[in-house]
Design a binder for these strands. Structure first.
Length: 117
DNA sequence: CACTTGACTTATT
DNA sequence: TAATAAGCCAAGT
């Protein structure tokens, strides 16, 4: 893993901090941009996490489909190859998706701060 | 270097 | 409860 940056400071590798968390999301679970941003600390915002996802969509080991917004809505589905890819991937992991929203989101939600790293 | 844009979130009306 | 505003921060223009 890359070095952990001092609080409030960032560099070009800040994407990897996001990737590390996203990769750690257990199969069949989801998380949110805000939760990841909060976990990573000061200087990070939900928008920044979203930007990191945008840059991560090419990496096979970064399951961006498991990251949704605070309401459990698939806000990033249109950024995949096809608008249905995100939903399809989630369903493949037994995550129910109806009308672009994760069902039982509060149960599927995975908080990085509660992980046993 | 200033302004705009966007896979967000929270507070206010 | 729904619509709007404001705060947020990196990258692109």
């Amino acid at each position: 893993m890359k070095k952990v940056l001092p609080s409030g400071k960032r560099d070009a590798d800040f994407f990897e901090q996001v990737y590390q968390v996203v990769r750690a999301i257990p199969k069949g679970r989801v998380s949110s941009y805000g939760a990841i941003a909060k976990f990573l600390g000061t200087g990070m915002s939900a928008r920044t996490v979203g930007w990191a996802m945008n840059a991560a969509h090419g990496l096979a080991d970064v399951p961006a489909h498991r990251v949704v917004n605070r309401n459990g809505m698939l806000s990033g589905k249109m950024h995949f190859g096809t608008p249905t890819e995100m939903e399809t991937r989630l369903k493949a992991e037994k995550i129910k998706v109806v009308d672009d929203q994760v069902q039982d989101f509060d149960k599927k939600f995975w908080d990085p701060a509660l992980a046993d790293w």
